[in-house]
Each structure stands twice: as structure tokens, then as C-alpha cells.
Simulated scan of single mutants.
Amino acid sequence: MNATAVPKAIQPGVRAGGWIVAPARRTPPALRLFCLPYAAGAASVYTGWSGALGEHIEVCPVEYPGRQTRWRESPHARLAPLVDELASALEGELDVPYALFGHSMGSLVAFELARELRRRGAGEPHALFVSGGRAPRLRHEQPRTHDQPDAFVVDRLRRLGGLPGEVCDEPELLELLMPAIRADFAVCETYEYRAEPLLTCPVVAFAGTEDPEVPAARMAPWAEETTGPFVRYELPGDHFFLRPSRTPLLDTVRAALTPCPTSYTRQEHR
């Protein structure tokens, strides 16, 4: 989780009712990768990803309500309405194959979005990338945060290493961001797993070697959510390893967004 949802002016290039912050291409890509931010994060987390994944993959950073380009909107405090609204917004973006990437809270959103799109007849993603997010069947074991006093919420963010200095130094800014921060904690803390038919798409999991929040062991059960290929990578870093380990992470994502060979088997990489 990270508090990077600093309000900004509405940016050009937003589409899908504001859910995607990326200009539309003149010609359709081979595949769209929808990227879901972590709690209190924003679409800007994925700035710079597009060029790293090649010209045929269109990176579509998702903006949740209540931050940056959508900071005047009310954030969702439950996962189901968030996913339902997002799935509806993406209907016009599913004319080409798609994949999903989510970090921390974003991995949970990506998982439930994959199931919701399947229910709507859109088919499953080409691949589901889950990063730094506990497997959905596991219980939430971290301290309950969303309904605690502000000081508790801020301290938790500090201990996670996810509170930028500019937010710490600006009480008014922190007050402005607090509704979205609390809502995102609530999304994670109130989530209840419901059994459905397993996915059949590949699931690629990433864990930080020094992540105290979601160690690799809590990523391993993601294998139980698909009958398709599963692979888990451990990358150097703490809960926010996607920043220091950005290059190997993106290299792995790019390699995975090609058809998996039929002999593909489950494996783990360190």
C-alpha cells in the first residue's frame, strides 16, 4: 500500500469513463494490459511501463475513484462495486486480447475482475499477473486499519514504507487523501473469498524477498486459482519491490505475454 494519490489536474488521454489514463492508439494493439494500482496508489504508478513492454502491448493504467485524475469522486470501500463498475467501463476496451496486472490491493482487484469479465462473456485474460498481494483464499492477517483513528492509519502507512515525505509534511493534503486511503484498506480488509470455477489462464505471481507484509509463502496459494500454468518469481525488495526490481519484473511480464508452450509446467524462480 502506498499513499501516492496526490490530487492533480485532470489529465488528457483519460478514457473508459476516466478509469484508464492513457491516450487511445490510432491502430489497435495486439494486446491490452490493464494495470491495477496498490491501495492509496494511482494510475501514475505505472508511468513508463508502456515503452518497456514493446510497441504491440498497450499499457492501460487504471485510476480508481478518489485520487489524482478522479480525486473529486467518492472512493469505493468494498471490492464488489469497484469491480462491477470497472468491468462495465472496460466493455469498449475488450476488442483485442487483454491481460491484467495488479500489485498488492491491485492483485485482488485483478483477480476478481478476471472472474467478473468471464461471467460477462468477455473471456479470461491472456495472463493474470499478481504482485505483492496475498492469495485470495488466505485470511487477512494484518491489523484492522480502515476504521481506526487517523494517527493509527498514518503510522501503519509509515511502517509499510508507503507514505511519501510530501504527504507527511502537509497535514491538509493528508486529510484530503484520507478517505481514499481508508476506503482502500476497507476493500482489502472486508473482502470475502467466494468459490467459483477455477480460472484456466496462466497466473504469474511476484513476491519481494524482503516483504514482511506479503512474503512469498502467502503468494504460493495463487496456484490454486487456476488450472492453467502457474509460476512464482521472487524479486529483490520489500513490499514495494516493483520499484527497485522494475527491470526484471517488466522483462518477465513482457516474456509472459507471448503464447505459453503446451509443455509449460508449474515452477518457481528465485
Rank of each mutant, 00 (worst) to 15 (best):
R182A: 05
V130S: 03
P244M: 06
R137Q: 14
Y46L: 03
V6D: 01
V253Q: 00
G102R: 11
P248G: 03
V45A: 13
G121C: 11
D169S: 11
G102Y: 14
G162I: 14
E196P: 00
R232A: 11
F152T: 12
E192T: 14
F111M: 06
E116Q: 14
Y264T: 13
L36S: 04
E55L: 08
L31E: 01
L177E: 08
S88E: 00
E170W: 09
V6R: 10
Y233Q: 02
C60K: 04
E170T: 12
A87Y: 11
V253A: 01
L94I: 08
A87G: 08
R270I: 04
E58A: 10
L36W: 02
A135M: 10
R67I: 12
P7W: 12
T226G: 00
R26Y: 01
L86G: 02
S88V: 04
T27S: 10
R270T: 09
T27H: 09
A223S: 14
E112I: 11
G123N: 07
R159C: 06
C260I: 00
G132E: 01
H56R: 15
L138D: 01
S107Y: 13
S107L: 08
G133C: 14
V6Q: 05
Q142W: 15
E124V: 09
E124Y: 08
R72H: 12
Y233I: 03
S44A: 14
N2Y: 08
A220V: 13
D251M: 11
G133A: 13
R158S: 05
T247C: 00
G165I: 12
A255V: 06
E63M: 09
A151C: 04
A30T: 07
P81G: 05
A207V: 07
W71N: 08
A110E: 10
H103L: 09
I57G: 00
R118H: 08
E141Y: 09
R243I: 10
V154D: 02
V153M: 05
P229D: 08
A122Y: 13
L199G: 00
R26P: 00
R70F: 09
P244H: 11
E116D: 11
